[in-house]
């Protein structure tokens, strides 16, 4: 039997996984990227152009949309993280009714986002359940559906994201060997110090995964901000929909999609930088 050159063997070995990735992830991304420059674009004329980016950054509504999309990614994610972290810690303790709570807090996981949005709406909209309950006792609920700060969107997103993040973060906190935390205590760390210096850094992969997944979900969120968000600005996702299906402007859609992806990638890179500096700060790494 003739032996194949090593390079060919290696290529054959990575073909199944590499090919799959290239076909289903790389190719669509590449097409969107090229399309944003007018190349191989659906409905485009095929020549290289910066027109779509000029359009994106030249239009106030789109600029605001880009900022707003980023806002809808960052703020609900931070809010959810602030709730999930203590919740995951708490769930690691034993308390009466823990089993029940453990099952109940996961309920939002199986409720689709659009349903969550409607729940928030019926609860908090003008004349909603909360208003009807609170007005008689003299509490005037601020406007949180279609309000400027998108509080309704934040609530609905966090309602979905908190159990998700808690699950992932709880898993990585739970994987930390108990003796490691106890060792920190015998060396003089208070529970809080042990939390910041031992548990958080060791659970960081889980925390990050939860953070990034929620963040990226927020960048592309469509249904929830469409229902609960303010009239202006609209998130870029909504502009993408309108430009694609009402104006057939696929080049602009590709430019918008590329920008949303770019911001996600930047956040990812920022994350890698932060964990590196955390390693030096916490771990004493000198490399």
């Amino acid at each position: 039997m003739r032996r194949l050159p090593q390079g060919v063997v290696a290529a054959l070995l990575v073909l199944p996984s590499g090919g799959y990735l290239a076909l289903f992830f790389g190719l669509p991304l590449l097409l969107a990227f090229l399309g944003s420059f007018g190349l191989y674009a659906r409905g485009g004329d095929g020549g290289f152009t910066l027109r779509h980016y000029a359009d994106l950054f030249g239009t106030q509504a789109y600029r605001d949309g880009l900022v707003f999309s980023t806002y809808l990614a960052i703020v609900p994610t931070l809010v959810s993280l602030a709730i999930s972290l203590p919740l995951a810690m708490g769930l690691a303790q034993t308390f009466p009714g823990r089993k029940l709570f453990n099952a109940l807090y996961k309920v939002p996981l199986v409720v689709p986002g659009i349903v969550a949005a409607f729940i928030v709406m019926t609860l908090f909209d003008r004349g909603g359940l909360a208003a009807r309950l609170l007005t008689p006792i003299g509490i005037d609920l601020p406007k949180i559906v279609r309000d400027d700060w998108a509080v309704g969107v934040i609530i609905a997103t966090a309602w979905k994201a908190v159990p998700f993040m808690t699950l992932i973060i709880g898993g990585s906190l739970g994987a930390i060997q108990k003796d490691i935390i106890l060792a920190a205590r015998t060396l003089g760390a208070t529970p809080l110090t042990a939390f910041w210096r031992i548990q958080i850094p060791l659970a960081l992969p889980g925390i990050t995964a939860a953070f990034l997944l929620t963040f990226i979900g927020g960048m592309g969120a469509f249904a929830v901000p469409n229902l609960l968000g303010p009239v202006y600005p609209l998130p870029l996702s909504v502009h993408m929909y309108v430009n694609a299906f009402e104006r057939n402007n696929w080049g602009l859609v590709a430019a918008m999609g590329t920008m949303l992806s770019l911001i996600s990638v930047l956040v990812l890179l920022a994350y890698y930088r932060t964990t590196r500096s955390l390693r030096t700060a916490y771990g004493g790494e000198v490399r």
Binding site: I180, R185, T186, P201, R279, Y282
Partner: peptide
């Protein structure tokens, strides 16, 4: 007194080293 106030040094049977810290740290 919680463990951090006892000034007791304990070498764990499982070592319990901090995996995210260098030996010096």
């Amino acid at each position: 007194l919680p463990p951090e106030k006892r000034n007791v040094g304990l070498v764990f049977q499982s070592y319990a080293l901090f995996p995210h810290m260098t030996v010096a740290a």
